[in-house]
Design a binder for these strands. Structure first.
Lengths: 245, 245
DNA sequence: CGGGAAGTTGAAGAGCGTCAAAAGTAGTGG
DNA sequence: CCACTACTTTTGACGCTCTTCAACTTCCCG
């Protein structure tokens, strides 16, 4: 299984010679980097590498020493944990603007793999922590992001522990839709870049149940399955009602 | 449903007149407060109220404005979320040394209730954040605790999404045992202060399944159900093997 | 085109939930 | 001290949702 390529300074595209490439970054405002003034971006760029990953590439494995933290600049990442017998739980999907590497403890506690071609900003963890020392606003932002992730994790626990297959899938589609909207993409024909296997492993279901539930929702007029992994949400209200129980 | 009583300076017991009550706190080392030098404790005490809660008392409800953060000094707390139809998911249990209030977003995203009589150190969120500004080591510690909580949340997702009832219960008992040990209590006859309902709502099971699974584990010689909600772990190795899949 | 992966559909079965009732436990007051 | 009540836990019978196993179809990329 291939890992990633290091493409120094390639992500995102650099502007002028002395200017930080982050200045042109479209998702900076929703990422950690948004906590920095444009004048401070230099400090960030100096310790950054651009990383390019192809679908299926592993960014790091559960158990690897946690040497880096990342920012997702483009693409989709899945985070997962394995049980010894191969059962898998996907603990989250990351999209542009998301931070990767928060939950560490010397080693990573989960694996990170690319679902779609992705661009990442990579920082050595040690250097990144040093940077935080000098930029308390950034550290506060990171704490806020961790706090948000915890709230998301709790949502997911409710979903996994107490929702039916139908409710799980409705919640999933709405989550994708809302997150796309937050990144400035259209919310309705929502792109679903992950496979049925990924969806099942995220929702605590089998691929067959995911497929059957998609079909049932299509037949009852809730959604429309379009080409290229797009899903139209035909009845937003009803979907929300289903998702919330 | 009663809420809590404010007992200024009562938690934990104060030592001398000018001395911070925290100086005598037995769980300080494992709490956020451990990041402070003993000389800095005064700053913490100044913005602190002691809170006393009885079993069943609500510390705050999901949706309440997030005005305070807390430290658990004694007792057991459960965090939970409700679906509109009453289905409940317990997202975590808190024990002495745990921090309460991390995942906020103007309002609390979960409810916190006492299972056993508990003592809490309460801080106004605004004052606490001001305190953090002046104590970067404490903020870093908080980030580390958030990071740990995220890892724990991911464990719980694996449990909820991919484990069987038997595996869930084994994981639960071992978790209680390990956390008791970390607080310096004995790990083997582990105290289980929560009801079957709480356990079920934590593990994504019904009380009947929890009860049946306890019985099955008892009959196969894995555990022994003792009086006063104590459980002896008769075969640690086997329990671990079951818990890990 | 062709081959492999991804997705769909069907039939049968298991694990856990639901409903119901009994047994145990704890707190209260005469 | 014991009866009374209310709650928690256990146990049983049955049913349903989701899983498992299997075959088939569709999609995609060289």
């Amino acid at each position: 299984m291939p890992r990633y390529n290091i493409v120094p300074g390639a992500v995102p595209r650099a502007g002028g010679a002395g200017e930080s490439p982050c200045a042109a970054c479209t998702i900076r405002e929703i990422a950690v980097c948004g906590a920095l003034q444009s004048g401070e971006l230099r400090a960030l760029t100096d310790i950054m590498d651009g990383i390019s990953v192809s679908p299926g590439d592993v960014i790091f494995y559960e158990g690897d020493p946690a040497r880096y933290v990342f920012n997702v600049a483009a693409g989709t990442i899945r985070l997962s944990r394995l049980l010894p017998d191969g059962r898998r739980q996907i603990t989250g999907f990351l999209f542009p603007g998301d931070f990767l590497g928060l939950a560490y403890d010397e080693t990573y506690t989960y694996s990170a793999e690319a679902i779609e071609t992705a661009q990442l900003c990579r920082f050595s963890r040690a250097q990144f922590e040093t940077l935080l020392d000098g930029h308390p606003r950034m550290e506060r932002r990171l704490l806020g992001m961790a706090s948000n992730e915890l709230a998301t994790a709790q949502d997911q626990m409710v979903l996994l522990g107490r929702k039916t297959a139908r409710e799980k899938l409705a919640s999933f589609l709405l989550m994708l839709s809302r997150r796309a909207e937050r990144r400035g993409q259209r919310a309705d024909p929502v792109r679903v870049p992950m496979t049925r296997t990924d969806i099942g492993d995220y929702l605590g279901l089998t691929i067959e149940t995911v497929s059957r539930t998609f079909t049932a929702m299509r037949k009852s007029g809730l959604i429309e399955l379009q080409p290229e992994h797009a899903v139209r949400l035909l009845d937003f209200e009803e979907l929300t009602a289903i998702a919330d129980g």
